[in-house]
Write a protein that binds this DNA or RNA. Structure first.
Length: 455
RNA sequence: UCCUCAGUAGCUCAGUUGGUUAGAGCACCUGACUGUUAAUCAGGGGGUCGCAGGUUCGAGUCCUGCCUGGGGAGCCA
């Protein structure tokens, strides 16, 4: 008898009715009766589970009745269309226990809180909710690569260890090979001869490659040591950072929009079962929301116009919106709801943005753009980069960025400079948007946040 | 980092102005049941009330400190 997986039945449809099959997987639920029993069986290869029916004619009937939720089993039997509920099920000829799961197995067939599931993060992928979330995550990652590979972008692996100081993106984790339990930190004697850290961005190196391949993207882990305790921040997260040469801000926004819609569309096509379940769980029609998103043009508004809208809003904000200042969370929320689900805000005041962004002709704003999305906050942040050597150097000096250490980054403006633009997309925030999950800790397998580095 | 709420059985939760032996549902064990699907019905076992102090004749309940988690804010993607 050939060993098969549930995907052979539900996805590939390679196995037809009345065929003998053998499957290995886990018990999600088990309902016992005197003369027969029903096992909800899943093997993780598709979202769907299948019901296994066994009866007292089997020699080990009483043992099977004792198999508990969470146990791994092997099932042999015939695939049938049930006359009782009109769905596929397996009438077992043999069920054997592979790995028992004792009575205190934490994941029971009932509703658990997300907080509890986080504490058993090594078991939660077996739940239907996290089967859906992590399948979507996997397909979304593939869609990201597919989009850029179809456009012949070069996938660049930027370093995770860096001695770049002040990349303009938040606090970094120091990395050391010194035995700090014995000696005081003297980084001149450290592995790299100076203080090194985990990368907070791959953008600067990405720009070097964009100046060679024209279109590139990165997709990898990023680390920030900020003491942020929110639903949208992680200390370790995955980021996608495309960088495009000979590209200015409006064209960048076109790319961002096209890219995002491509990924969303792909999920609606490849993750129907998962979206259906997630819609039920999160009480939002995700499929409908996503299809509307794909069909609607994302609004574009300057920071100045956004402030005007906020000032005229019939709402009392805790923080008064001001020209030249950053937006508070309540402002972002209002704007994203005002414009539908998402909105590009561009031309930001230069004083609140990073050193590498191109200063506009008004000398007050930079060619930066943030995409604000309901629930996920700032989903993408991008900008046209400062391509002029003198202007970039002056900005670095003004903002206290060590230009000597970043000489190579400056030199990119010396040797065949070109206008270029890029953006960063927080992958977990994208997964939140796709799945409707409200806490970023629930869309990454094992989350790292302040005071939490479990598993 | 600040503000705020919470922590009671494996899980979800109740526990009155401080007062006898801390309860329920699910899970588990025993039994009943010919198609269940969060199966149902009867019975049973299961507790360091987050941790450490304190107040009191008496603390799950009140006070202090700490730990952990949630929500909000800030920082950011």
């Amino acid at each position: 008898m050939k060993k098969i997986e549930l995907q052979d039945i539900f996805l590939k449809k390679e196995f037809g009715l009345n065929e003998e099959v053998s499957l290995q997987g886990w018990i999600r639920n088990h309902r016992k009766q005197k003369q027969m029993g029903f096992i909800d069986f899943f093997d993780g290869t598709v979202f769907e589970s299948i019901q296994v029916v066994y009866d007292e004619k089997m020699t080990n009937f009483s043992e099977i009745s004792g198999y508990r939720v969470g146990s791994s089993i092997e099932v042999q039997g015939k695939l049938i269309q049930s006359e009782y509920n009109n769905s596929l099920e397996i009438v077992a000829t043999e069920v054997t226990l592979i790995g028992d799961s004792p009575e205190n197995f934490p994941l029971q067939p009932k509703k658990h809180s997300l907080e509890f599931l986080r504490e058993i993060a090594y078991l939660r992928p077996r739940s239907r909710l996290f089967q859906a979330v992590f399948r979507v995550r996997s397909v979304a990652a593939m869609a990201v690569h597919q989009y850029f590979q179809d456009k012949n972008y070069v996938y660049v692996h930027t370093p995770l260890l860096t001695t770049n100081d002040g990349e303009g993106a938040g606090e970094a984790f120091t990395v050391s090979a010194l035995d700090l339990s014995k000696e005081k930190a003297d980084f001149s004697k450290d592995f790299f001869g100076k203080q090194a850290s985990l990368a907070v961005t791959g953008q600067l190196e990405g720009e070097a490659f964009a100046m060679a391949f024209k279109n590139i993207y990165t997709f990898g882990p990023t680390f920030r040591a900020e003491n942020s305790n929110t639903k949208t921040h992680l200390a370790e997260f995955w980021m996608i950072e495309p960088e495009i040469a000979f590209c200015e801000l409006p064209e960048l926004m076109d790319l961002q929009e096209d890219f995002l819609k491509y990924v969303v569309k792909m999920i609606t096509e490849k993750c129907a079962s998962e979206l259906k379940f997630l819609s039920q769980y999160n009480q939002t029609d995700l499929l409908d929301r996503h299809l509307k998103f794909v069909d609607t043009q994302i609004a574009r508004v300057t920071h100045e116009d956004a402030i005007t809208i906020l000032k005229n809003a019939p709402v009392k904000f805790e923080f008064t919106p001001e020209y030249g200042e950053d937006l508070a969370k309540e402002h972002e929320k209002y704007l994203s709801e005002h414009f539908g689900s998402a909105v590009f805000i561009y031309n930001w005041p230069k004083d609140i943005k990073a050193f590498y962004m191109k200063v506009n002709d008004d000398m007050k704003t930079v060619a930066a753009v943030d995409l604000i999305v309901v629930g996920s906050g700032e989903l993408m942040g991008g900008s046209q980069r400062e391509a002029r050597y003198e202007q970039l150097h002056d900005r670095m000096v003004q903002m206290g960025i060590p230009s000597e250490d970043l000489y190579w980054y400056l030199n990119l403006r010396k040797f065949g400079t070109a206008e270029h633009s890029g953006f960063g997309l927080g992958f977990e925030r994208l997964i939140m948007f796709l799945t409707g999950m409200e806490n970023i800790r629930d869309v990454i397998p094992f989350h790292r946040t302040p005071q939490c580095c479990e598993f």
